[in-house]
Amino acid sequence: MAAVAIQAENLDKWFGEGEARTYAVRQVNFTVPFGQMFYIVGPSGSGKTTLLSMISGILRPNGGRVVVAGEDIWRLSPDALATFRLHTLGFVFQDYHLFPRLTTLENVAIPLILQRWEWSKAMAAAQEMLAVVGLQDRGELRPMQLSGGEQQRVAIARALVAKPTIIVFDEPTASLDGATGKMIIGFVKHDILNDHRCILIVTHDNRIFPYADQMLHMEDGAVVKLDTGGSLEK
């Protein structure tokens, strides 16, 4: 296991060419070790979602490199990169993106199904993961029958079920009230994060800032400040 979970070096991303070229991310550098909760924060349009996409192996950067769990991910072929994401990263999307026609249990099992697990084994593992997030009795319900907080926990269970080492959260509290948001992030910090995991969160919700171990502040595509443990305590 590499001690460094994520390493971003001189990351650039622009859209358009010539005079129309617009930088979404410019010369971003940071390192996240395992065992940390790393926040990317900033106002809308600051480039934090673009940065998250490049780190997650979803959006190819124009320059620089990203090393995730020891793998220089943008050197991988598209298929290898998809396989890498499937086994190494877990995603919790802002709108959860749960399939409304599948049960909660089936939604959670999706990453295992994509890893070609047998259906029954995948369901058993998904049931265990639902128990971890406290929804063991909600497996047969459809997502629409759950509250927003419960849907969030289903999305977390889906992100965790394949036991990835890096979990990516996109605006995890955007659809939740303050108390539920804090409860979810507290759960992630205390029950999900460990020495072999890294949590990456994109947010602009300052109510959950106290849970961060490092916080990268972005503005206009560039890093304006990196808060580490010491500065966060202040």
């Binding site: 979803i58 998809a82 890498f84 994401r85 499937l86 990263l89 995603f91 990453p111 994509l114």
Partner: peptide
């Protein structure tokens, strides 16, 4: 799209 992000080819 979410499936593709998760790792579906």
């Amino acid at each position: 799209g979410a499936l593709k992000a998760i790792g579906a080819k």
